[in-house]
Write a protein that binds this DNA or RNA. Sequence first.
DNA 1: CCTACCGATCGGTAGG
DNA 2: CCTACCGATCGGTAGG
Lengths: 191, 191
Amino acid sequence: MGRLEDICQVAERLFSERGYHATSIRDIARKLHLQGGSLYAHISTKEDLLWEIVRRAAEQFLQAIEAVLRQESDPVARFRGAFRAHVAVIARNLPAATVYFHEWRQLSPQRREAVLQQRDLYEAMWREIVRGGIEQGVFRPVDVAMATRAVLSVANWFYQWYRPEGPRSAESIADELSELLLAGLVKEGQS
Amino acid sequence: MGRLEDICQVAERLFSERGYHATSIRDIARKLHLQGGSLYAHISTKEDLLWEIVRRAAEQFLQAIEAVLRQESDPVARFRGAFRAHVAVIARNLPAATVYFHEWRQLSPQRREAVLQQRDLYEAMWREIVRGGIEQGVFRPVDVAMATRAVLSVANWFYQWYRPEGPRSAESIADELSELLLAGLVKEGQS
DNA sequence: CCTACCGATCGGTAGG
DNA sequence: CCTACCGATCGGTAGG
C-alpha cells in the first residue's frame, strides 16, 4: 500500500518540475521502474493523482492555520504563528506546494471549485486575524481585504524562490518576513 | 502582418486560461477560423509562440522600471512609481502576464535561462531602490534582499487575483498596496 | 505488475 | 491559407 505514496511522491516532483501536462504517466512509471500501464493498478486516472496531491496540500494549509487560531488569541502572536505555519507547510512539501499553486487549474471544474472554496475559507481565516488586530487597536485601521492579500502574496510567493539547500532555515525567513509585514500593520509605539 | 498579432493575442488568452500544454495549435487556429496547419505560415513552432509572449512581457516589466528610475530620484517616489508601473504592466496585459509568470518553465533551457537573467536584472533594480532608501536614511535598515522579495511577492501575486471588471482601478489598488509596504519600510516620523 | 494494444490527438510538413 | 497526411506519443484497458 506504500505504493500509492511512492507514486504521489514521484508525481509531485515531476509535476512540479515540468508541469502536469508535460509529465506523462510513463514518465512517472519509469522513475518507479514500472511499465506505464502498471500505475493503473493503484490509481484510476492521471487527474485523480493530481487531485490527491492538491487535496492534501490544501488540507495541510487549513490544518496549520486552524491549530494556530486554537492556540493563540493575541493578534500579533496569531499573525506570526500563522505566517510561520504557512511557510512551514511550503518548506516541508515544496514539490507538492508548487503543484498546488501551479496546477490546480488543470483539475475538472468541480474539483477546481472545491479548491477555490478551500482557498476562500483559508483567506477568511487570515482576514479574521487582521480584523481582530484592528478591532483590538493593535493594528492600524487598514483595508482588511487588501492587507490580507498583501500578506498572503508574500506567504504564497515563498514557494517561488525558497530553496531548502540555502543557508537560512524556513523559520528564520518566515520570522523576518512577518516582522516586515507587521511593521507595516502595527500601530506606532505598539508591539 | 497583423496576423501574428492576432495569433499572439489568442494564444495569450488560451495559454493563460488552460496552460501551454493543454492548448493545442488547433485550439488557437479554431478561434481564428483557420485550419491547424495554417498557423505555420506565421509561426515556426508552438514554442516560438510562447517565447514571443514571454519575451514581450519581460521587456515591458524592464522598460517600465527603467523609465521610473530615470525620472525619479527620491526613494519613496521611486518605490511608489515602480510599484505602480509593475502593477500597470500586469493590469494592461493580464493574459500575457499570467503566461509570463506561469509558463516560462515550458521554454527550452536556453530561453528559460534568458528569462531568469532578465528576472534577476529586474530584481536588482528593485534592490537598488530599497538600498538607496536605506542609504539615504529614509528606510529602516532592513535586509535588502528579503525586503525586496516581500515587495515583489505582492507585486507579482497581483496577477492571481486582479480582475479588470472589478470596482477598483489597478492604480488605486497599486497605491494602497505600496502604502502598506512603505509603512513597513519607512522610518517612523519620516515620509 | 507485464505485454500488447486501443483510439485519439498531438506538433508539424508537403504540395498546392 | 487549405487538404491531407506524417510519426510520435498520449491516457487508458484487457487479459493474464
